[in-house]
């Protein structure tokens, strides 16, 4: 297996997906600001999507399902971004900070 035919191998995509997922996890853990976490969460979702698409291409009998799922994930990500960021802005207006630790007083 040559390095130039990697695109024909399922494992390449799975490992890439795992890497993206790992980056997402790392980002969520280490980031201090809400926006940073949100960015990391997008990476997580991207990792998941890559997996879906890879299985869709290589193993699934119906190559439509994976695409539809990916589209669904995209929609969720967009919605998440919209809601998340509006929360960030609301929190910023209140606390003048977007640090997660500064907003510990946020109660239900």
């Amino acid at each position: 297996m040559s390095v130039l035919t990697l695109y024909n191998s399922l494992n390449t995509f799975l490992i890439l997906g795992a890497l993206l997922f790992g980056m997402g996890v790392y980002g969520i853990v280490t980031r201090k600001t809400f926006i940073g976490m949100l960015i990391a969460a997008e990476l997580l979702l991207a990792g998941a999507s890559v997996n879906f698409m890879a299985f869709n291409r290589f193993t699934a009998p119906d190559p439509v399902v994976g695409q539809i799922f990916t589209l669904f994930i995209m929609a969720i990500a967009a919605a998440e971004a919209a809601i998340g960021l509006s929360i960030v802005i609301a929190v910023y207006h209140h606390y003048k900070s977007i640090d997660a630790e500064d907003t510990v007083q946020l109660k239900g």
Binding site: L10, N11, L14, L19, F21, G22, V29, T30, T59
Partner: peptide, 24 residues
């Protein structure tokens, strides 16, 4: 964070490589 991330990514990768994915 790095440890967790590496663990998860590594685990997934190993799992992916080890598994035999059937092509349908």
């Amino acid at each position: 964070g790095f440890g967790t991330a590496a663990l998860i990514a590594g685990g997934f990768s190993v799992l992916a490589v080890r598994t035999e994915w059937p092509a349908i």
